[in-house]
Design a protein around this nucleic acid. Structure first.
Lengths: 137, 137
DNA sequence: ATAAAAATGCAATATTGTTGCAAGTTTTTA
DNA sequence: TAAAAACTTGCAACAATATTGCATTTTTAT
């Protein structure tokens, strides 16, 4: 139990209230979270700046990852299966529901390979699918 | 000649300095452009607001399209082949080069289909590949 | 328990995006 | 081609989002 502590320790991060709460939020959320969601769901218990810095730290440590969107927002998400060792975050498909507007990590759907034109060398791929999710269908 | 005028006319848009200049920029640029790039490359000849509105207009008309990114920026790009009738913008792969940081539309690379979990109904797909482009290799 | 290291909150500042409205352009029309 | 109508622009104000430095507090290591 206390998955959050374990994750923080494993990544050599100090255990603080903010980090625990924010990490819990991710652990409890199926969809992705934006900075604003986090502020709202923590009742602004932490300074905006702290939230920004915490998110950055988590991204740097590979605890959460960013999701590409076309509107001007950054979304963050934890992988469902907690991405222990060697699991790259960058290889699953993200789904954005047009009805409930949740962003969901489809951890089990891998981004397919594509054949690029001559001279292009791929490093990472991201794929975002929009539509209607399984709960709104 | 004067591809910009033709495009503006075809879309029923008034011909104005701003629209011509901004459209030219897109026509001359291989990669994608951010709002900031446009301001810079037009020497701030146009008000920020005008640029925002022009981009919005172009998106609405389907002249340019938005590209999903993970950092907090919206990128816009014209399709190479000018996307005449019935060509959807949403179906080709975008490539972001880690060296020159350009975003390039790979018009000829189609986003592959993926099999989604039960209950998910896809509408549109976007794919972003990062790596090294053909000029930086 | 104490010192060192790290994280937080505050304040200030920067960046990015939006809206209403008056003035200026472009297009339409007759 | 001149006048009216339609549309676009720039300004100003505002709102939302993000970043930085620094003093204080909390956490970790000794």
């Amino acid at each position: 139990m206390d998955a959050n502590l374990e994750i923080l320790r494993k990544n050599g991060l100090s255990i603080t209230e903010g980090r625990k709460k924010i990490l819990d939020l991710f652990l409890d959320t199926e969809g992705a979270l934006a900075h604003a969601d986090i502020e709202r769901q923590t009742d602004a218990a932490f300074d905006r700046v702290t939230v920004y810095r915490t998110l950055q730290t988590f991204v740097d440590k590979g605890i959460i990852h960013q999701i590409p969107t076309t509107d001007n927002s950054v979304l963050y998400a934890l992988c469902k299966h907690n991405c222990e060792a060697g699991h790259h975050h960058d290889n699953h498909v993200h789904f954005i529901c047009n009805k409930c507007h949740k962003t969901i990590c489809l951890d089990d759907v891998t981004v397919p390979e594509v054949r690029l034109p001559k001279g292009f060398r791929p490093a990472q791929s991201a794929m975002v699918v929009t539509g209607v999710c399984d709960e709104c269908k």
